[in-house]
Write a protein that binds this DNA or RNA. Structure first.
Lengths: 224, 224, 224, 224
DNA sequence: CATGAATGAGTGTTCATTCAT
DNA sequence: GATGAATGAACACTCATTCAT
């Protein structure tokens, strides 16, 4: 599975409908090529000529549609985040939370974790690009925080508060502490899995995730 | 607070003693300037001419001391990680763990978290550079994993296993799950604090960290 | 007489028809300038910036057409040798030999010598460049030997063997000894003429060449 | 046999006696290294730092003794030619001519050719350097012509005229035509031997040279 | 006198951007 | 609108030459 092509990536479906964003076929070709080249080399080491070649257009054409190289990056990433990655993340969270209001929290957290894991695996290269370039392009940083981080956190906070009201969850800790902690536990586990191991991606790690959820719910201390 | 200059950064103290690494004053100047420029622009977008200007030397001088631009990066980062960042992290962990064997775990975890927080705050820009460039330079990746990540994790695992034997900590979860989870909770909290807020760095957040530790030890679930 | 510009040089007529070699005007300009600069300074001391200036193009343009400086040299010299210098030499020899089968050898040798002299005079600077750079570029060396030296020698051997069969020429010496010797006599005479004297090129030296041919045919020894 | 080191080369013996030329040990080291580097890379592609390294001195020292890189070249080549190569060539010719006044010309020419061949073989790289750089440095050109070419030719002319007076050699051709022709025959034979073949240097080619001398003396034409 | 670190102009080469066609 | 040749400033890197020690 090639996670470098917008057309093959789950995340890119939003862009496949050009009318959505008033993008012509040609512009879409360019952004698709840009995604591939930027993710492989990084923004700075990528060249517009390679993007042009991969897009099957001339270099001149690129600059007819996008004023600068930076514009290509932002024109590609910002809508991707705003229209696809953000909504997709938020909606899937919302649905899982709403649909499963009566499921044990443990089950819901597992679903969320597995879904996040799939997302991270499928979009590894893209996420790496986004996080790297966010350092140098504040526009990007703001979109990520505003459209993905903040909104996702909101949904998780909703979940936690829901369960706090139900009495399933401690009420003496602010919801955001619980949310960020859970997120941190899961993400660090996933990253270490991706970075440190060569285990094939398919291997089922549901058991390991369940251990983390158990830890989150019941704590590390010996039960009194 | 300028966290871009080696001379102002705690982490760089190891390098400030040139004899340690056989670095001349001039070489040190260059690496100091390189840190500033690489940190600001990233490796690829940084130019040797700007490094030269900031170091107050000619461009030729840079290449008398370092064969390529990439060599500058690695000559700066690898010793920094290997000789300073790594040992510093590992030793402070080791000491805190050994010295406080009889302190409640909660206290030890607080000390560790606060110390990590200080480290992260003081070396923010440097850490960002290291993690970004680790993507493109496997040498760097290996040093980080080998000299910092792996060794630090080992110390924390020692701590957890010590407390498991004492019966303070559950024994039905592998130590590494506990370690990575705690690490994830704390780091994501700190990162969100750094990225999302404008609160001045000085503000005491001991209370918040204690909440996270409470969560880690006692879990999110309502006590039965 | 400017023997440094392709456009003024007989040898370059083949290149002046760009279609022959798929060379655009601009590429031809660059190669023309390259010939001038390489000839004047030698390959190593010539700079691409001077070639650009003389070609009336920007330095970037040069590298759009030729990947490296060495490529410029070879793109200029190899076709010149292969398509122009080589065929021209070989064909004119062949024609002189075939057309004048019944002329006395003395007359044929004179024609050949005069033609070689004209060639050498017209292409002095170019020949000097080729022979100099052949030391450092084996590709060039091979082309010269294969396309000019070997093929020209073959024609002369044909002539000699033809005359040996007719009984005009001694048969107790191998043809190649006769050929290389004649060639050596003539070339050294011409080089010394070019290098050592200030006589204008136009001066008729037919008498002197005839003496050399006489020597070649009849030997230096007093007739018995 | 390393023909790149002055100390191993017949030609360099003249320079081994520093007092001859007021050269200190250090200067001699530099020139020795310069010879090696210049012959390998050519003047332009050679670097002063490599010369310094091979000479075992610092780069600064080089420029204390020789104002510019070009000065090194000329300081090395000009005395080499003037004091060693020239005299050696001329003297050996003179001796062979004077000592063997009564030997058949054929024998004398053979001795001369063999001696020239040895010289050329022993000093191949040096000769290539000299001829190449003579193009760009008129000082060099003048020394070669004045100290070697002209003086050597004079000796050969003396030989020829001696034999003309004895009635061994035709008197209807100017001596210089005979000399240059003989020289051309022999040199082109030797060059083609060096350039075109891989036969080991040691192989005896006395027979082939004798054929050339036979040709020179008796001519190519069938004897009437 | 010797050193070698420092220099800075210059090298071949790249690349984002422009613009005539 | 699309092209791709042309640009020229910038790039990483080199090297003959200088000069403080």
């Amino acid at each position: 599975m090639d996670d470098r092509s917008l057309s093959d990536q789950p995340i890119s479906t939003g862009l496949q409908e050009p009318s959505d964003l008033q993008l012509t076929d040609k512009q879409w070709n360019i952004l698709d090529a840009a995604l591939a080249v930027f993710t492989e080399k990084g923004f700075s080491a990528a060249t517009t000529s390679e993007i042009a070649r991969q897009a099957g257009v001339s270099e001149g054409t690129i600059f007819r549609h996008f004023k600068t190289k930076k514009d290509i990056l932002l024109a590609m990433l910002v809508p991707l985040i705003r229209n696809t990655m953000g909504p997709k993340s938020v909606n899937s969270l919302t649905q899982m939370i709403v649909k499963n209001e009566n499921l044990p929290l443990r089950e819901v957290l597992l679903m969320i974790a597995l879904e996040r894991q799939e997302f991270l695996t499928d979009n590894q290269a893209l996420l790496r690009l986004i996080l790297t370039e966010a350092q140098y392009h504040p526009e990007l940083r703001e979109v990520i925080i505003g459209e993905v981080a903040y909104k996702s956190q909101e949904q998780l906070i909703r979940l936690i508060e829901q369960r706090q009201q139900k009495g399933e969850i401690r009420q003496d800790l602010p919801a955001w502490v619980l949310v960020r902690s859970f997120f941190g536990m899961v993400v660090v586990y996933m990253l270490s899995r991706v970075m440190l191991t060569k285990r094939e991606a398919g291997k089922d790690n549901r058991e390991e995730i369940l251990k983390i959820i158990d830890l989150f719910l019941n704590g590390a201390a010996m039960e009194k």
